[in-house]
Amino acid sequence: MLKMNQLRKNYPDFSLECNMEVHPGCITGLIGKNGAGKTTTFKAALDLIHLDGGSVEFDGKNVKHLTGKDKEKIGVVLSDSGFSGYLTVKDIAVILKRMYSDFDKEKFMARCNRQQLPSDKKIKEFSTGMKAKLKILIALSHDTRLLILDEPTAGLDVMAREEILGVLREYMEEKEDRAILISSHIATDLENLCDDLYMIDNGRIVLHEETNVLLDEYGVIKADDTQYEKLDKKYLLRRKREEFGWRCLTDHKCFYQENYPGLIVEKGSIDEVIMMMIGGERL
């Protein structure tokens, strides 16, 4: 549904180069540290910046040529941008009614009420959590086919985050061919929600894998020097020197479990995989 072909964007001290695809029916996650290029990727997808190379397509159409009707099908949450803080929820409802043909005002106000968002207060006076919830409610207030969410759960406590993830799962359940592109720092959120993950570092995609493969087949090996010498390095992706010897990342943990009884092979959590892919030595 969303395709980034050979995207290139150059800044004076940073450059982005990536290929990414979000398929209908999928929740795709983008994970990386601050400054890795997540927000730049999103801005490219939303035609907010000019590209130095490549293109982004939404349903086969270049995003530079999307009409108003096309844009109505995309719901967006940006981490550092939103409606003016001087507006109230009531104002926003009135504005959205004029912008989206299928905006349901009663439903929107009801949902805001349920989330305890005051309707007459200026949103600059909202707490971080309230602002985040409002942004998501706005993105979900009209019928969309794609959600592009940049750090939608930032600033939310665990309960609120779970609620948002639940809302996103319901969103996907309602229509089979919807899709979500979501970025986050919080790996556990992505682990439980996303179907596939892109890891970005320094403007490049370092890993793209289905979540279930990451959780089932990736593993972290902890070996002392002797054990490490004997290891077949074929399926090792990264290694990192530790006090005890070597920490290694593999994408075939069963191979090592079967052939090296006694070797410590742990399930790879997303956080660990990121740390190893980015911080570990390539093999």
Binding site: G25, C26, I27, L165, G166, R169, E170, M172, E173, E176, N192, L193, C194, D195, D196, E210, T211, N212, L215
Partner: peptide, 19 residues
């Protein structure tokens, strides 16, 4: 249960259920 609703219940990726 449908792939999406089971993935929602178990809080896992839909592709895992599909697999």
């Amino acid at each position: 249960p449908s792939v999406r609703s089971l993935s929602k219940e178990l809080k896992i990726s839909a592709l895992t259920v599909k697999k």
